[in-house]
């Protein structure tokens, strides 16, 4: 075989390899995205004040003129990816990068969960000072503004006795004004299995 043929063959193999490699990387990424967003580390918007969020809805930001999608969070843990279920079944996560003040006045906000009887780890990184003890920001968010450079991960450590139940957690994330204690937004959060009782909205499934 001539050298030219060897190199042509090698280049053809390589482009075929590139197609396979791209398919593998992007295919697994699509899989990762489709498991991550609805079930494994659901990312959601948190506008305030938005009242009690009982169904998926869009709220307007009167200052910027934009709109924000907000929804109750329902996680069906049976829809998690196979790798998550095998290697890391007891820790669930929720995440946000978007705490938006849609009011016409500033709010210094605090965050809390209701109905928690297990460990929840708060991992908050923000461009303004955050008080880990009181779980409040030290400065107010202006009208129409968003907490800058925000990354919030909440990790829920479910012990085996809770994981044995159909519903692991049924509570809420509350955003409140830390100066007046007024509740601004309540987002219901539920972690449950497929075997959890059906509601008026049907069988349990992840909200996304």
């Amino acid at each position: 075989m001539t050298l030219k043929k060897i190199f042509t063959k090698r280049i053809l193999y390589s482009f075929a390899g590139a197609v396979v490699l791209s398919g593998l990387i992007f295919g697994s990424s699509v899989y990762a995205k489709n498991t991550l967003n609805p079930t494994e580390l659901s990312h959601f918007f948190v506008p305030f004040p938005a009242g009690r969020v009982v169904r998926p809805m869009t709220v307007d930001n009167p200052i910027t003129g934009g709109s924000i999608f907000v929804r109750p969070i329902t996680i069906n843990v049976d829809q998690r990816g196979i790798l998550k279920r095998i290697f890391n079944p007891g820790v669930e996560g929720l995440s946000t990068h978007w705490l938006d003040n849609i009011d016409t006045k500033p709010h210094r906000i605090g965050l809390k969960f209701t109905n928690v009887n297990f460990e929840v780890r708060w991992d908050i990184n923000a461009g303004i000072p955050w008080n880990e003890e009181t779980r409040t920001f030290d400065v107010a968010i202006g009208p129409g503004e968003r907490v800058p450079d925000l990354g919030v991960d909440w990790l829920f450590f479910f012990p085996p006795e809770i994981r044995a139940q159909d519903v692991w957690y049924d509570g809420s994330l509350i955003v409140y004004d830390a100066d007046t204690n007024e509740t601004l937004t309540t987002i219901p959060i539920k972690f449950q299995k497929s075997t959890a009782p059906a509601t008026s909205e049907g069988r349990p499934k992840s909200s996304y």
Partner: peptide, 12 residues
């Protein structure tokens, strides 16, 4: 504690 959470994409 930073190693306590892994999602499927992270494991891959």
């Amino acid at each position: 504690g930073a190693l306590s959470y892994w999602h499927s994409g992270g494991i891959m």
